[in-house]
Design a protein around this nucleic acid. Structure first.
Length: 268
DNA sequence: ACCCAGGCATTGG
DNA sequence: CCAATGCATGGG
């Protein structure tokens, strides 16, 4: 096992909590305290180590991917300094010190995962997603590679219904897979342009686009104000406020604020 | 048997 | 701009 130090501060248990919170995850598989994840076709194992993580195999391809997976790009120091001025957020950041919101490594995976999570509970979405991954993805050790865009572009609606998608979501997923849109190039565009390109697709609304900005592109200002769980979390911490407007209060750390409020409402 | 859960498109005001 | 409606599944 090779040692890798993500940006500090860093807390492995808090950062990986999301991979365990909603039932088993075939793509980010948790087994015996180790996170298993397929990167570029190979299984990578990630375990806690003093001051960082042990990664196997660690090379020029897996290292940067693992850092992103563990939320490396987020500016926690800046966030904590800013949050110290907010009487509600300050204790939350102290309690969750070192929590880095995990990032989706692949844009197609991020969008399909968000589509599956629309409207239903995350436990339900996870169960359906796991069945979809087992049918259309490929196993590599303890983890599964998420189904490729090409594979889902060729999927028949009936196959997707069989793993539990609604007819509408089956159409959304196949439509996205077949769409004439280079998902990797979205990373070069500003937030509102990314949202415009994505919401032009059937089945992708503002909520889905906001989570794509937040969890795949790590955009600091992403604020998924329509999210039901975020609405509850904001109500818990700030009372009866307009969640959409409240985003301005958290500028320029809306994304980290959303993740910290959500995790704080989940983790004792 | 209900009811709700980290939405969206469609239809009709 | 806003309200109502159907959607498929998992967990309580």
């Amino acid at each position: 096992m090779a040692f890798l130090e993500p940006p500090q501060p860093f807390d492995f248990a808090l950062t990986t909590e999301r991979f365990r919170a909603f039932g088993p995850d075939r793509v980010n598989a948790w087994e015996d305290g180790t996170l298993h994840r397929v990167v570029a076709g190979r299984e990578v194992r990630i375990a806690v180590a003093p001051g960082g993580v042990d990664v196997e195999p660690l090379d020029a391809e897996t290292g940067p991917a693992v850092v992103r997976l563990l939320g490396g790009p987020f500016d926690l120091d800046g966030f904590y300094a800013w949050a110290a001025g907010d009487a509600t957020l300050a204790p939350v950041t102290r309690r969750l010190a070192g929590f880095r919101p995990p990032l989706s490594l692949d844009p197609f995976e991020a969008l399909v995962g968000a589509i599956l999570a629309q409207q239903v509970s995350l436990f339900s979405a996870r169960a359906i997603g796991n069945r979809m991954i087992e049918r259309f993805g490929e196993r590599r050790g303890a983890a599964w590679a998420f189904p490729t865009r090409e594979r889902l572009a060729a999927a028949r609606q009936e196959e997707l219904l069989a793993v539990g998608l609604s007819r509408a979501k089956a159409d959304y997923v196949v439509g996205l897979a077949r769409a004439d849109l280079d998902l990797a190039r979205l990373a070069a565009l500003p937030d509102d342009e990314v949202k415009a390109r994505l919401t032009a697709l059937r089945g992708i609304g503002e909520w889905t686009a906001d989570w794509f900005l937040a969890r795949h592109l790590a955009r600091p200002h992403a604020w998924p104000w329509g999210d039901l769980a975020l609405r509850k979390a904001v109500a818990t911490f700030y009372g009866d406020v307009d969640v959409r407007d409240a985003g301005a209060r958290f500028h320029p750390f809306q994304n980290l604020t959303a993740h910290y409020l959500l995790t704080a409402s989940r983790v004792p």
